[in-house]
C-alpha cells in the first residue's frame, strides 16, 4: 500500500527542488505535485519500504500496511532518534507492540 501524505502537514520541504522523500525513495516514486506537496506518482510500484515515512521531517507521511499484514486500522509507525529507530505496531484489535533498535553508527 502506498504512502499517504497529509497535505495539511507536508510543506514540500519548503518547496525546494527535491523534497527529502523524493531523494530517499529507492524507486524514485515520490515527487512534488503542483500544489507543492509530495505525493507518490506510481502507487503500485511502492514496496512499502517506509523510507519516506521515516525521513519526513514534519511527520506527514504514513505508510498503510498491506492487507496481507494487517487490515484497515492496523498501523506501523517509525520514530527516528539520533541513532535509534523505534517501531510501534498496532493491530486491528488495538494491540500494541514496540521495538527499539540501534540503526546507525556515529
Amino acid at each position: 500500500m502506498p504512502p499517504k501524505v497529509d497535505f495539511e502537514k507536508c510543506d514540500g520541504c519548503k518547496a525546494q527542488d527535491e523534497p527529502l522523500c523524493e531523494q530517499v525513495c529507492p524507486g524514485d516514486l515520490m515527487t512534488l505535485g503542483e500544489n507543492g506537496k509530495a505525493y507518490c506518482r506510481s502507487t503500485r510500484d511502492c514496496w512499502d519500504c517506509m523510507s519516506c515515512t521515516k525521513i519526513c521531517p514534519v511527520a506527514a507521511i504514513e505508510t498503510r500496511i498491506p492487507y496481507q499484514l494487517g487490515y484497515h486500522g492496523a498501523k506501523l509507525t517509525p520514530m527516528m532518534g539520533t541513532n535509534t529507530i523505534t517501531w510501534t505496531s498496532v493491530d486491528i484489535h488495538g494491540n500494541v507492540e514496540r521495538f527499539r533498535y540501534k540503526n546507525r553508527i556515529g
Binding site: 502537514k9 521531517p57 514534519v58 511527520a59 506527514a60 498501523k75 509507525t77 520514530m79 523505534t86 500494541v96
Partner: peptide, 15 residues
C-alpha cells in the same frame, strides 16, 4: 511546530 509534528506521531504510536 516541530514538537507538534512529533506529538501527532506519538498519537499514532498510541503514546
Amino acid at each position: 511546530k516541530r514538537s507538534g509534528d512529533l506529538q501527532d506521531k506519538l498519537k499514532t504510536m498510541m503514546i
